[in-house]
Amino acid sequence: MRIAVTGSSGTLGTATVARLRDGGHDVVGFDLAGPAGPGFTRVDLADYGQTLDALLGVTARHDGVDALVHLAAIPVNGLVPDVTTFHANLTASFNTLFAALRAGVRTVVHASSITAMGFPFAQPPPYLPLDEDVTAASNTYGLVKVLEETMAGQFARWDDALSITALRFTNLVAPGGYDTFARAGDPAYRRDLLGSYVDVRDAAMAVALALDAARPGAAVYNVAAADTGLSIPSAELARRWFPGVTVRKPLAGFESLVAIDRAREHLGYAPAHDWRTEYAAAQAVR
Rank of each mutant, 00 (worst) to 15 (best):
V198F: 03
G195H: 14
H273G: 05
Y141L: 01
D212E: 15
T277L: 11
D22W: 02
R191M: 13
D160I: 07
R183M: 04
A72F: 02
L45I: 07
D199S: 04
A208L: 08
L172P: 04
H70R: 04
E278G: 10
V245S: 04
D212K: 15
W275S: 06
S8Q: 02
A152Y: 02
G7K: 10
R262V: 03
T96P: 03
T14L: 09
F181E: 08
D227Y: 03
A4Y: 02
A72N: 06
K145L: 09
F86D: 03
A111D: 00
D44I: 11
G229A: 09
E278N: 11
E148F: 12
S256L: 10
H266G: 00
N171S: 13
L20K: 12
A72I: 00
Q154V: 14
P129L: 07
E236Q: 15
R168P: 03
A182Q: 15
L97H: 14
A259S: 15
T170W: 08
V65L: 08
I260A: 06
F119T: 01
Q123S: 15
A259R: 11
R2T: 09
V108C: 09
P124L: 14
N171H: 14
G64S: 09
G49K: 12
A235W: 04
P175C: 12
V27K: 11
A281H: 08
A103K: 07
A281G: 01
A218K: 07
T84Q: 14
G177V: 01
A182W: 10
V134Q: 11
S163L: 12
G57M: 05
W241P: 04
S138C: 13
G13S: 06
L194M: 10
L52D: 13
